Simulated assay, not measured.
Amino acid sequence: MGKFIGKCLIVVLVLFIGVFIGMEKAHQGMQNMKGYEEPSLPSPVSIHEGEDGQIEAEVLGSEIQHADQLSKKKEDLEKIGTFNIFSSMGKALASFVREATDALIQFFLKLFSS
C-alpha cells in the first residue's frame, strides 16, 4: 500500500511539473507566432533574484510566499483562536462519556462493596 501511494505521489508530481512546462512552451509558442515579445503577455512561471539577494518566484502572476511569511500567518491564525464547532462538540461528547463512565463505575463499586 505504501509503495502504491508513493508511486501515485511521484506520478502526480511529474504531471504537475509537466503542466508548468507546457504552459511555458505555450507562452513561447505565442511569442513565436506573433513574431515579437508583447509586455502585456507575461510568462506564466518566472524566477528572478530580488533586490535583497533572495530568489523570488511567480506563478501565473502571484508571488510564491517565503516560509517565514507562512509561519507568521500560522502564528496569526493561532492568535485569533477560531471557533470550530466540531472540535467543541467532540470535547463535550468526550467529557460526557468520561463523566458517565465515572458514575457507572462508582455505582458498581457501591453495589458490590455493600
Score class of each variant (00 low, 15 high):
residue 23 M to N: 08
residue 30 M to L: 12
residue 30 M to G: 07
residue 25 K to W: 05
residue 31 Q to E: 11
residue 35 G to N: 03
residue 21 I to K: 00
residue 20 F to R: 12
residue 31 Q to Y: 05
residue 36 Y to D: 07
residue 12 V to I: 15
residue 21 I to A: 00
residue 21 I to M: 01
residue 38 E to A: 04
residue 30 M to T: 10
residue 41 L to R: 02
residue 35 G to K: 02
residue 20 F to T: 15
residue 40 S to T: 06
residue 24 E to A: 08
residue 36 Y to P: 00
residue 40 S to I: 05
residue 37 E to S: 14
residue 42 P to H: 01
residue 42 P to V: 00
residue 29 G to L: 10
residue 22 G to M: 02
residue 18 G to E: 07
residue 22 G to E: 02
residue 11 V to P: 02
residue 12 V to E: 13
residue 32 N to C: 09
residue 27 H to I: 04
residue 17 I to E: 10
residue 32 N to G: 08
residue 30 M to R: 11
residue 18 G to C: 10
residue 41 L to W: 02
residue 28 Q to H: 09
residue 21 I to Y: 00
residue 27 H to S: 06
residue 35 G to C: 03
residue 21 I to E: 00
residue 12 V to A: 13
residue 39 P to E: 14
residue 17 I to W: 11
residue 26 A to N: 14
residue 41 L to K: 01
residue 36 Y to A: 06
residue 28 Q to F: 05
residue 27 H to Q: 10
residue 31 Q to G: 04
residue 35 G to L: 01
residue 23 M to P: 03
residue 17 I to N: 11
residue 17 I to M: 15
residue 24 E to M: 08
residue 27 H to C: 06
residue 29 G to C: 13
residue 37 E to L: 09
residue 26 A to G: 15
residue 39 P to N: 15
residue 41 L to C: 04
residue 28 Q to S: 10
residue 19 V to D: 14
residue 41 L to Q: 03
residue 27 H to L: 07
residue 27 H to V: 03
residue 32 N to K: 12
residue 33 M to P: 03
residue 20 F to H: 15
residue 21 I to P: 00
residue 40 S to W: 03
residue 20 F to N: 15
residue 41 L to M: 04
residue 40 S to R: 06
residue 40 S to L: 04
residue 28 Q to P: 01
residue 41 L to I: 03
residue 15 L to R: 15
residue 27 H to G: 02
residue 9 L to K: 08
residue 34 K to N: 08
residue 25 K to P: 01
residue 22 G to R: 01
residue 28 Q to R: 09
residue 18 G to P: 04
residue 23 M to K: 07
residue 27 H to P: 01
residue 14 V to D: 08
residue 20 F to Q: 13
residue 25 K to V: 05
residue 40 S to N: 06
residue 13 L to D: 08
residue 23 M to W: 06
residue 31 Q to W: 03
residue 34 K to R: 11
residue 19 V to Q: 14
residue 35 G to T: 02
residue 36 Y to M: 06
residue 32 N to Y: 08
residue 23 M to H: 09
residue 9 L to D: 09
residue 29 G to D: 09
residue 14 V to Y: 08
residue 23 M to R: 07
residue 40 S to V: 04
residue 32 N to F: 07
residue 35 G to E: 03
residue 36 Y to S: 08
residue 24 E to V: 05
residue 22 G to W: 00
residue 40 S to Y: 04
residue 17 I to H: 12
residue 24 E to I: 05
residue 28 Q to Y: 06
residue 39 P to G: 10
residue 23 M to C: 14
residue 24 E to N: 11
residue 25 K to E: 05
residue 23 M to A: 13
residue 15 L to I: 12
residue 39 P to R: 10
residue 18 G to F: 05
residue 25 K to F: 05
residue 42 P to D: 01
residue 30 M to F: 07
residue 23 M to E: 08
residue 42 P to G: 01
residue 23 M to I: 10
residue 24 E to H: 06
residue 27 H to F: 04
residue 18 G to N: 11
residue 10 I to N: 12
residue 23 M to D: 06
residue 33 M to N: 14
residue 14 V to T: 14
residue 41 L to E: 04
residue 18 G to V: 08
residue 12 V to F: 09
residue 33 M to S: 14
residue 12 V to H: 12
residue 13 L to T: 14
residue 31 Q to T: 07
residue 10 I to V: 15
residue 25 K to C: 07
residue 27 H to T: 05
residue 11 V to M: 13
residue 22 G to D: 02
residue 22 G to P: 00
residue 22 G to F: 01
residue 20 F to L: 13
residue 23 M to G: 06
